[in-house]
Nucleic acid binder design. Structure first.
Lengths: 222, 222, 222, 222
DNA sequence: AATGAATGAGCGTTCATTCAT
DNA sequence: GATGAATGAACGCTCATTCAT
C-alpha cells in the first residue's frame, strides 16, 4: 500500500530518502473517503448511512474519517462544495463551445445528462439533497442552482437577441422549466436502475424546450 | 374523554368500562396523528423526526402511535397511501371538467399547484420522498407517478387526435417534461418560503409546454 | 419490584385501582440513581466513571439515567445541589443546639465529622470536587462553602462578644484554618480506609482550635 | 535543530548522522514535556487533558511524548516523583535554617506557601491529586505526605523539649491540623485566581497554630 | 384504548497509543 | 530520535419500541 516514488537528497551530511507524498498521499485518502461517502450516501441515504459504512467502504478506520472531516455533516458539505461544484463548472465550458443560443442550450443539457450519467452515485446524492428541507448544504445548493440558472439566463437572452427565442418569456420561470425537466428525466433514469442511455434524451428534450408540444408550433407555412 | 356507548365488564376483580369506539372516533385519532406526522416530517425530514415529536404534535402519548401504526416507517407509508393518493385523485376530477386537451392540461397543472399550495407540508414531504433512493414508499410513489403519467398520456393522445398537439412526440419523455417542470416550480416555491402565489404560475407554465421557448413558434398565419 | 399500595376509586362507572406512585415511584428511581452515582463516583472518580457503571449499580438501563438527568455532568450537579446541600443544612441545626460559641464550634465540627463518616461515599465525592479546578459544580461548592464560612463567622463573633475568643483575629483566615483542618482530618480518614472513628477527633481538634499548640497557652493559674 | 556533536554512520545504504545527545539535551525535552503537562493538567484537570494538548504546549509531536513517558498516567507519576519531590525537599532546607521549633514551623509554612505561590500550576495539580481516591500517584503522595508529617513531628517534639509547645498534644492530629490549614489557605488562594499575596498569610497562620483562637490563651502573667 | 416509563441497541465522536517513515 | 497519520476501543447519548398499569 505504501510503495511510492521518492527523492534522494543530501541533508546535513548524509543522503536521505524522502517519499513524495504529504500532499499526494493526503489527498489520496481524502478523496477515497469522499468517494466512499458518495457511494454509501447514494445507497443508503445520508441519515441511514453510518460513519462505519463510509470508513468500511473507504478501507480506513472509523477514526480516520475525523482526520479529514469535522463530522458526519461535514462530509456532505464537502461533497457538495468540492465534488458537485466541480461538475457544475464543467457545464460552463461545454456551453462556451457553442455559438448559437440553441446549441448552447443543447450543450448544457447534454453535459448535464452526461455528467450525471457518468457519476451516478453523485447524481443520487444530489437529487436527494436538493429536494430536502432543512438541508445541511443549503448554501452550496443555492450557489450551484444560481450558477445553473445564470447560464440559462444568458442563453435565453442571447437567443432573444439572435431572434431564435421568444421575447415574451418570463425568464425566471423558463429557468425552472428547463432545470426541472432535466432533473425529472435524470430522476426517472435513476429510479429505473439506469437501464437506458440518459444522453440519448438530449435532442428530444431540447426539442420540447424549443418547440413545446403544441401542434401550431409546426411552423412555417407548413 | 370519549364517552359514548360502552360495555361494562368484570375484569380481574373490578368492573371495567370499555367504550365501544365507533369507526369515526378511531379515525379521528388516526387522522390527528397522520396530520401531525406530515407537519413534523415536513419540518424536520423523516429521519430527523422522532416519534415523540409526532406524538407531541398530535397531542397523544408516544405509545398511542403504535396502536394505529405498525412502526415509524408505517406512518410514512400511510401518509402516502392515504393522504397523497387522495390528493392525486382530485387531479382526475379536475381534468374531467375540461373538454379540450389543452384545457385539460391547464386544469391538471392548476389543480396540482393548487393542492400543493394548500397543503404545503404534504408538498414538502412528497418532494423529499420522491427524490430519495431506498425509499420506504417506493410502491406508493410509483403508483401515484403512474396515475399522473397516465393522465398526461391521455391528454396528449387526445390532443393529437384533436390536432392541437404534435404527433411526433416521444410521449414518455413528454410526461417527465411536464411533471418535472411542475415539480421544480413547486420545489422553488417551497424553498422560497412560499412568499408568492404558486397558482399564478399556471398560465405561463402551460404556455411553455404548448409553445416552447423557440421564436419560430410564433407562428404567423399558420 | 412493583408491589405497591393503591387506591380504589370509582371512575366513570367502574371501580379502578390506581397505584400510588407517580411521585413516590419516580422519586424512588431518581434517588436510586443518585445514590448509585455517588457510590460509583466515589469509587472511580467522576471522569473514570461511566454511565453504564452508574446504571448497573442502580439496577436500571443506561437510557433510564437520561429520564432523570440531563447528562452525565448533571448527575454531579444534582448530587451537590440536592444531597450535599441537605448535609450542610444539618450543620446549622446542630450549631443552634448549643449556647456558647465554643460549644457551637464543637457541635459544628462534631456534626461535620459525623455526617461525613456516615456518608463516606458522599465525603469522597465532596473532597474530590472541592479541590478541583474547572469544576462542574463551582456554583454549588461556592454556596456550600459560604454557608459553612458564615456559620464559623457567627460563632467567632459571638465568641468575641462572650469574651471566650480573641478579639484580634483575622476572621477570614480563621475560617480557612478551621475548615482546612477538619477537611484534612476527613481526608486522612478517607485514605486510611476508615479504620478508626472519625468522630472521636472532635475534642482534640476543637482543643487545638481554641488553645493552639503553644505551651504558653497553658494558662497557669487562670 | 539540535546540532552539536554527532557521529556519522552507515545505515542501510546511506550515511547517517546521529547526534550524540548529551544528558542535558534529553533532559531538556523531558523537562519541556513535564512542565507543559503540569500547565495543561492544571488548566484542564488530568482526565480532561489530552496527549495532544500536552504535546502542543511542549512544542513536540504527540508520538514524542512516548519516547519519554510510558503512557499518559506515567506523566502524572513523574510529575509527582520528580517535580513535587523536589519542591518538598526544599522544605527541609528551609526548616534547618531556623533554631527554635516555632521558627522552624514558621519557616516550613513560609516555604510551603512560597513554593506553591511560585509554581501555581504545580499547586493546582497537587491539590487535585491529593484529594482524589484511586489516585495514580498514591505511592508518591503518601511519601511526600510522610516527609511533611515527619518534619512537623520533629518540630513539635523539639518544641516540647524546648518547652515552647504543649506536652499533651496528639501529635498525629497536630500534623493534620497544620497541613490541613495550610492546604486550605492555598486552596482558597487558588480558587480566588491568586489575586492576593499568599506568603503574607504566614504570620497570622502560625499565630493561630501556636495560640489558637481562645481568649484565655491571652495568658496574663504567664 | 391510552399511557409514558423503561429499555438497550446503535451511532457519532474522541483520544491514547502505535509505527512506518 | 522525532514525527503525526492511522487506528479502534470505548463512551455518552438518542430514540424506536415495548408493556405494565
Amino acid at each position: 500500500m505504501n510503495e511510492h516514488s521518492f527523492i534522494i537528497y543530501y541533508y546535513g551530511n548524509s543522503f536521505r530518502r524522502c517519499a513524495i507524498r504529504t500532499k499526494a498521499k493526503t489527498n489520496e485518502k481524502y478523496h477515497r473517503i469522499l468517494e466512499a461517502a458518495i457511494k454509501v450516501f447514494a445507497d443508503q441515504g445520508f441519515f441511514q448511512s453510518t460513519i462505519s459504512m463510509v470508513a468500511g467502504e473507504a478501507g480506513v478506520a472509523d477514526g480516520t474519517i475525523y482526520l479529514y472531516f469535522k463530522n458526519k455533516d461535514d462530509i456532505l458539505v464537502q461533497i457538495f462544495s468540492y465534488k458537485a461544484k466541480q461538475v457544475f463548472n464543467r457545464f460552463r465550458e461545454e456551453v462556451d463551445k457553442a455559438k448559437t443560443a440553441i446549441d448552447k442550450l443543447r450543450n448544457l443539457v447534454f453535459r448535464h445528462l452526461q455528467e450525471f450519467q457518468r457519476d451516478r452515485d453523485m447524481a443520487v446524492v444530489y437529487q436527494a439533497e436538493t429536494h430536502q428541507k432543512n438541508r445541511l448544504v443549503e448554501g452550496q445548493i443555492k450557489e450551484m442552482s444560481k450558477m445553473y440558472m445564470d447560464i440559462v439566463s444568458e442563453i435565453v437572452e442571447q437567443g432573444q437577441e439572435e431572434g431564435s427565442m421568444r421575447r415574451d418569456l418570463y425568464i425566471s420561470l423558463v429557468k425552472r422549466f428547463i432545470l426541472g425537466s432535466v432533473d425529472e428525466v435524470i430522476n426517472t433514469w435513476l429510479h429505473s436502475e439506469g437501464k437506458y442511455d440518459l444522453v440519448s434524451m438530449v435532442d428530444p428534450l431540447v426539442d420540447l424546450f424549443i418547440r413545446g408540444i403544441g401542434a401550431h408550433n409546426r411552423v412555417g407555412n407548413s
